[in-house]
Nucleic acid binder design. Structure first.
Length: 584
RNA sequence: GCGCCCGUAGCUCAGCUGGAUAGAGCAGUGGGUUUCUAACCCACCGGUCGAAGGUUCGAUUCCUUCCGGGCGUACCA
């Protein structure tokens, strides 16, 4: 008999495996049953599609194999109906008692029956990672929230997650900025200048860098000085970093992104390791000199002329490029941090860079058995389908976006919140507005570009944050009205009868499998899709199945189902970094 | 030129790693509230899945070629 703690899907997997073993022999028991939720209720709740693939392997008609397996899956405790259809689909209808049981197990479980993965390893996730001395802008949104969602999901499943904010506090841009500031007579007493000022200074520096070759040269030399530990350069640099970090923390707090000071492992951290990395790389024989620079030629990369494309480790002026830093960071992560999985949440435009980096790491044997993954994402576009800019053509400040979101959310909500204080209303507007922005980003396939569109984000229908939040709010409202606590429900009372209850319960059982998918694909939008479907099924249930007005036994069952739905919604939103709210 | 990514309903997007009749929202049409939040639900309308081949019992999904768009392509990150 199957473990009572096992999820519904596990129980079905085991049942099919046992049936396969009985029908075809133990050697086939391990075959993936290819269990899928059915698209249409007329095909039952789930379907096992293994007969077709097995048919090919064994050289037998799939339909016949399906019949043989189905023979062993007679209706009983777990299944109420088993049918073979089409080329060899085995359609499974779960029995009422099994569905009740599975739902009760979830309700009883603190983790909603999501198992902790065995042999959990360490995952290092590199995300957020803004450049210092620049105000955070729309370009920093995606890495921050996608990385955060992935971190939360992996963490919940029991992986050890080490967040790394690979802060861009080192490099050419600092040469420009420091050189300009020092020329203007700044010193470390330039403290107190806001991030806004720095942004403006950065613009000036960049302009001068592009226009004035002498300045550009001095800026490059300034980088070399900084990297060599020149005192005045370092002091001024530190004051810039402090202001940047203060600003960054503020934005992350507003965004609900869980990156704090302890996660900062800036590029400068690796500075002292760079010479060693170059030496170690030289020792492997991979490092060669080309046009005055120290480079590696990874296999399979070509430049415009069809010549081998190098990864530049040390520039011809002696400075280190970001490839050197990335190599050092990779070694640190698999070495000292003991990562089994190293995940980079970075814009898709850097795909080539990461492909080269991973190729080099593999070819010189530096991966230490870890898996390296680039979680690439597309660009946020404006209405003109060009990268999102202000009307004046400037970068869109992240703070500005969050403020606008809050303002817009305030105008669509409000009148239902009797008795709410202004502070509560403000907080709610922020929760709804910011969530809408985040969810719009997380809910579409990350590799694609998308157009930033307020109306779509704050829409109350469709796959949006407010729609999901509303489903939760409706559930909370029932419990408030009914004066019942979501925690004090008897799982034994669950008795699923109505079709709307059934569909809801079946979908609830897919939570664990959904999180598996997110963890392997590193695609948060799959969780969004699951939650949207869940919210939609709950709304349907809500329309057709009165809860508080039902007679006692039915009421208890529906309360339990509502509570479970509420908890799954809350968990899902939490894992996405979306605010869960009680009223709206 | 080469490499990577994208192309699904008028619009915005899903499609569970190859499964049954390709699904949602918006827009359009028509319904639903003395009932737990109508920020909701129900119905209708809407598709040669960019094109053509191929592999397969089965292709939106995998392979090839082409078309269209985006990005990248040696000292910025």
């Amino acid at each position: 008999m199957s473990d009572l703690q096992a999820s519904l899907i596990d129980a079905l997997q085991q049942a099919v495996a046992a049936a396969v073993a009985a029908a075809l022999g133990d050697e086939h028991a391990g075959t993936d049953p290819l269990l899928r939720p059915s698209k249409d209720t007329k095909f039952g709740d789930f379907q096992a599609n293994l007969a077709m693939s097995l048919g090919k392997k064994l050289g037998k008609p799939p339909r016949q194999l399906a019949d043989m397996i189905a023979q062993q899956l007679q209706p009983g405790d777990l299944l109420s109906k088993v049918e073979v259809a089409g080329p060899g689909f085995i359609n499974l209808t779960v029995s009422a008692q099994a569905l009740n049981r599975a739902t009760a197990v979830m309700l009883k479980s603190e983790r909603l029956a999501v198992p902790l993965i065995q042999a959990a390893g360490t995952a290092v996730i590199d995300y957020g990672s803004p450049n210092c001395a620049k105000e955070m802008h729309i370009g920093h949104l995606r890495s921050s929230i996608i990385g955060d969602a992935i971190s939360r999901v992996l963490e919940f499943r029991g992986e050890r997650v080490i967040r790394q904010n690979h802060l861009g506090d080192w490099g050419t841009q600092f040469g420009m900025l420091l050189e300009l500031l020092l020329e203007q007579g700044w010193s470390s007493s330039g403290e107190g200048s806001s991030i806004h000022d720095l942004d403006e200074l950065y613009r000036q520096a960049k302009q001068k860098f592009d226009a004035d070759a002498g300045f550009a040269e001095r800026a490059r030399m300034r980088v070399v000085k900084l990297q060599a530990g020149d005192e005045p350069s370092l002091k001024l640099w530190q004051s810039l970093i402090n202001e940047s970090a203060r600003h960054m923390n503020e934005v992350f707090r507003l965004l609900g992104v869980r990156l704090t000071d302890k996660d900062i492992r800036p590029e400068s951290f690796y500075n002292s390791r760079l010479p060693q990395v170059v030496e170690a790389l030289r020792a492997t024989g991979a490092l060669v000199e080309s046009e005055g620079a120290q480079v590696v030629f990874p296999n399979g990369f070509k430049d415009r002329e069809g010549e081998p494309l190098p990864m530049i480790v040390q520039k011809s002026d002696g400075g280190f490029g970001y490839a050197a830093t990335d190599l050092a960071a990779a070694r640190f992560r698999v070495g000292e941090l003991q990562a089994k999985r190293v995940i980079y949440v970075v814009d898709a435009r850097q795909s080539d860079h990461f492909a080269m980096l991973f190729t080099v790491l593999n070819s010189v044997g530096w991966t230490n058995g870890a898996e390296f993954e680039h979680v690439a994402f597309g660009t946020i576009l404006g209405a003109d389908k060009k990268p999102f800019k202000t009307r004046a053509g400037g970068t869109v400040r992240l703070i500005e976006v969050l403020e606008e979101a809050t303002k817009r959310a305030a105008t669509v909500s409000g009148e239902k919140l009797e008795g709410a204080s202004d502070a509560e209303r403000a907080e709610l507007s922020r929760a709804v507005g910011v969530s809408a922005v985040k969810y719009a980003d997380l809910s579409s396939d990350r590799i694609k570009d998308y157009v930033f569109d307020w109306d779509r984000m704050l829409a109350l229908e469709g796959n949006t944050a407010p729609y999901l939040q509303n489903a939760y709010v409706r559930i909370r409202s029932i419990f408030r009205k009914g004066e019942v606590s979501m925690e004090q429900l008897d799982p034994a009372m669950i008795n699923i009868e109505a079709p709307e209850e059934r569909m809801l319960a079946v979908h609830l059982s897919l939570l664990s499998a959904t999180l598996d998918q997110v963890a392997t694909s590193l695609e948060p939008h799959r969780l969004c899709g699951y939650l949207y479907e869940l919210a939609s099924l709950y709304h349907r249930f809500y329309e057709h199945c009165p809860v508080l007005k039902a007679e006692t036994a039915v009421k208890q069952s529906r309360l339990a189902l509502s509570a479970l739905t509420g908890r799954v919604l809350a968990l899902g939103l939490e894992l996405l970094g979306i605010s869960v709210i009680e009223r709206m």
